[in-house]
Amino acid sequence: MTGPVLQRKIRWSGRLIVIGLVVQMLSLLWTHPLAFLCFALVGCPLVGAGILFFLYSLVSHEPA
């Protein structure tokens, strides 16, 4: 985990996860069906995409 390309990918996966978590947090502050949909259709996919991108960046990285 040392290359700048990998670090850039980690940065992006971190951003995706943080945005997803913030959406989830906001959705938990509101008792409404739309909050549930926000959680399930926006927050979860963002966090999932971030995790998958992070794992993909690890396995696709070739050390110099």
């Binding site: 996966s13 971190g14 996860i17 997803g20 978590l21 989830q24 979860c44 966090v47 995790i51 992070f54």
Partner: peptide
């Protein structure tokens, strides 16, 4: 921080 905890959080 980017794998285990987010899964638990979701």
């Amino acid at each position: 921080a980017l794998c285990i905890l987010p899964v638990l959080s979701v």
